[in-house]
């Protein structure tokens, strides 16, 4: 962590990075624009598209094997105060990675943290949760409720 930034709890950062990665690109962009923040930054790594090799485990829990690749966009930048923001986002949307890296940097900064948390991260997390619940509800309706037909005399 850079010297100018208060130490950020790993779990908290993992949470917001996950929310940013899972967010719909358009929804993230709309909410980011609405905040009207224009921080100055320098790229450490321009947004770039590549692949990551997905690893699975044999039998789901055994030794690892290479399953196939997926597309991924990453970005790293440094705010003028020195804070480093990074993003690793599935897919090929450079703007999404850039915005996520900026938000990651600003969230480490005490003066922006609470506002970003309440106006960006929490609403996006709620949307993700709602989408999951909606999918679960449809799935659950297809669950088989077995009943046994009694046959014979016994």
């Amino acid at each position: 962590m850079s010297a100018s930034t208060a130490p950020v709890e790993t779990a908290a950062r993992q949470h917001w990075m996950a929310v940013l990665a899972r967010a719909d690109s358009a929804q993230l962009d709309t909410r980011w624009q609405a905040l009207n923040l224009q921080p100055e930054y320098q790229f450490i790594r321009q947004p770039e598209i590549g692949l990551t090799m997905l690893r699975g485990r044999v039998g789901g829990s055994g030794s690892p094997f290479n399953m196939g690749e997926m597309t991924l966009t990453r970005c790293a930048l440094r705010l003028t105060c020195g804070t480093l923001g990074v993003a690793y986002i599935a897919g090929r949307n450079k703007q999404h990675a850039l915005t996520a890296a900026l938000v990651d940097a600003l969230l480490q900064d005490g003066s922006y943290h609470d506002r970003l948390q309440s106006e960006l991260i929490e609403p996006l997390a709620a949307i993700y949760k709602k989408n999951c619940a909606a999918r679960d509800a449809k799935t659950r309706a297809t669950q088989v409720q077995f009943f046994t037909m009694v046959r014979g005399e016994d």
């Binding site: 850079s2 320098q42 790229f43 450490i44 790594r45 790293a76 020195g82 480093l84």
Partner: peptide
């Protein structure tokens, strides 16, 4: 081993990172 890839011999100090190629 897989673990040697995540935590290699050394780790990254984020404050020391500089920009790579501008147009990679």
């Amino acid at each position: 081993t897989l673990s040697s890839q995540a935590s290699s011999l050394k780790t990254v100090d984020a404050s020391l990172l500089i920009a790579g190629f501008e147009n990679p």
